[in-house]
Simulated assay, not measured.
Amino acid sequence: MPLDSVIVARIVALIQDGRGQRETARIVGKSLCAVQNVYQRYEETGLITRRPGSGRKRVTTRRDDRFLVSTSLRNRTASAVLLRNQLQEVRDVNVSEWTVRRRLRAAGLSCRRMATGPPLQRRHRIARLAFAQNHLAWNDEDWSNVLFSDESRFCLNGSDGRRRVWRRPGERYAPVCIDERLPFGGGSVMVWAGISSEARTNLVFIQNGSLTAHRYITEVLEDHVMPFMITMGEHGILMHDNARPHAARIVRGYLDEVGIRRFDWPALSLDMNPIEHVWDELGRRVRRHTPAPRIAQELRELLLQEWNNIDQNVILNLIQSMPRRLQTVINARGGNTRY
């Protein structure tokens, strides 16, 4: 990499003041070879700047580069081909899409997969921000009184999109290089569960139809939540989201009748619920299993086995991350977060 003109000027000044080249190299923190080359160039040209390069000249100017950067920042999903066309149309500069990519990479921009998140409207952001601010001061003891609950669906032939394959050119559609997928995942199993710092509920399978408000009361709240909340004592709080079976009037009435406190949980806030990461861990364990389950009954048995094998310390660490989650929501002003 060429030396800065300030360093070059200092090297020349030190040598002209009578310093040796080896001593000068030690003072400026450069190699002796670099100092010798710099001073030799100065003696030949009388300049501290580099000689004009003999290679191919840059097609784009700094103004063209700024145009590419600003255009890509205004339209984050624009392809390199589209940016190249806009540069040619506006600036009358013709370059390849590879040149566009190099200019953007030099400016610190890189092309990556978009992060995913729910479509948050203004009211969602306000509610999420208010919840995070109201509970930011809670400590580990406060969060240990919360039962985080949710449902999740696991497919027989699901894929997390992370599978990769080593292949030769032309082997994209070779049988060994295809990730075979069945429509709708080849069948699925829906489960419900709850977690807390000290323990977890049983894994409940939602079978024979979808989960309704009445089934949520009879199959989940009465059989699993009520006994668990009794063990948590009078400070226990139930966390469930705003899904229709949870927010139904008969469900709210039942919780009020039996005296179960619950969070006023903001909508579209999966990132604040640590049980979502438990579902991810459970899904990874199932996908790693060999042989893979072929029917729904095998999948249910494997889910139950792996659910019981998850270390409680993993769940504890997730719940203790709540202050960091809330602070991240506040930093994002109620927007989507990395969680």
Results as ranks from 00 to 15, higher is better:
residue 106 A to V: 00
residue 93 V to E: 09
residue 225 V to G: 10
residue 235 H to M: 07
residue 87 L to R: 03
residue 92 D to I: 10
residue 46 G to L: 03
residue 131 F to Y: 15
residue 17 D to S: 15
residue 20 G to V: 04
residue 135 H to K: 13
residue 320 Q to G: 03
residue 78 A to V: 03
residue 327 Q to A: 14
residue 28 V to R: 04
residue 187 G to E: 04
residue 329 V to I: 10
residue 278 V to W: 03
residue 230 I to E: 15
residue 253 G to K: 02
residue 37 N to L: 12
residue 83 L to S: 04
residue 134 N to R: 15
residue 157 N to P: 06
residue 59 V to P: 03
residue 198 E to P: 01
residue 47 L to W: 02
residue 315 I to F: 04
residue 111 C to P: 06
residue 156 L to F: 11
residue 137 A to W: 05
residue 182 L to F: 07
residue 82 L to Y: 09
residue 122 R to G: 04
residue 285 R to F: 02
residue 254 Y to W: 14
residue 30 K to Q: 12
residue 80 A to Y: 14
residue 121 Q to P: 00
residue 63 R to G: 15
residue 118 P to K: 06
residue 337 T to G: 00
residue 293 P to K: 06
residue 220 V to G: 04
residue 35 V to K: 00
residue 117 G to C: 05
residue 269 S to T: 07
residue 334 G to N: 05
residue 93 V to Q: 05
residue 12 V to F: 06
residue 319 I to T: 05
residue 241 D to A: 04
residue 319 I to W: 01
residue 249 R to M: 09
residue 181 R to C: 08
residue 175 P to D: 11
residue 1 M to K: 00
residue 3 L to W: 02
residue 201 T to C: 10
residue 238 L to K: 04
residue 132 A to I: 03
residue 158 G to Q: 09
residue 185 G to T: 07
residue 109 L to W: 01
residue 133 Q to Y: 00
residue 193 A to Y: 02
residue 177 C to V: 07
residue 186 G to Y: 08
residue 218 T to Y: 01
residue 299 L to H: 08
residue 333 R to V: 09
residue 204 V to L: 02
residue 43 E to W: 01
residue 199 A to S: 13
residue 174 A to D: 14
residue 34 A to R: 02
residue 202 N to H: 08
residue 336 N to R: 01
residue 27 I to V: 14
residue 322 M to A: 03
residue 32 L to K: 10
residue 135 H to R: 14
residue 57 K to T: 11
residue 232 M to E: 06
residue 225 V to I: 15
residue 291 P to T: 04
residue 171 E to L: 04
residue 278 V to I: 14
residue 55 G to W: 06
residue 289 H to D: 05
residue 147 L to F: 11
residue 171 E to I: 03
